[in-house]
């Protein structure tokens, strides 16, 4: 394929792609599911850092805590929380679809909306409870 020279025929659009379709909720949620999955993939670097720092000792753990308590660290952790919950709820949605249920015009919109509202709501709830318990100094 890569060796073929582009001829006028091969430059023609082969099939309609993303730019042809009107953005829809289920379509955007599908894209976001993949993006959150990819973000969580690289987010495991933070998980490994956290566990290795804890296993290394107080100095290494202090550095990790300092980074996570900074403004950037808190934003990353907030995004991580949302991505994790969103991808998990999205996964449940896909598992429901795998059984053949929830494909109707009403159900699929409802599932997508519940996924989005659920992930934002649960993330905010977790952080509000977390900040209340620790008095803001996480």
């Amino acid at each position: 394929m890569a060796d073929l020279k582009p001829s006028p025929a091969s430059l023609r659009p082969l099939s309609p792609h993303l730019q042809i379709y009107k953005p829809m909720l289920t379509m955007m949620m599908s894209i976001v599911h993949r993006i959150t999955g990819a973000a969580l993939y690289f987010g495991t670097l933070l998980l490994a850092w956290w566990l290795l720092a804890a296993a290394s000792g107080p100095t290494a753990y202090g550095k990790f805590q300092w980074a996570m308590e900074s403004l950037v660290g808190q934003l990353v952790l907030f995004g991580y929380t949302w991505a994790l919950i969103h991808h998990m709820l999205g996964g449940i949605r896909h598992l429901i679809w795998d059984t053949g249920r929830g494909f109707g015009p009403v159900e699929r919109e409802w599932l997508a909306l519940a996924n989005l509202i659920g992930s934002i709501g649960l993330t905010l709830l977790l952080w509000i409870v977390g900040l209340l318990v620790t008095g803001g100094a996480s």
Binding site: A54, A55, G57, P58, Y61, G62, T81, L84, I85, L126, V129, G130, V133, T134, A137, S138
Partner: peptide, 17 residues
């Protein structure tokens, strides 16, 4: 995992370890 992390927020190294 989320519950474990939530329970460890604000703890020092010794308690976390």
């Amino acid at each position: 995992f989320v519950l474990i992390v939530a329970g460890l927020i604000g703890r020092n190294h010794a308690a976390t370890a």
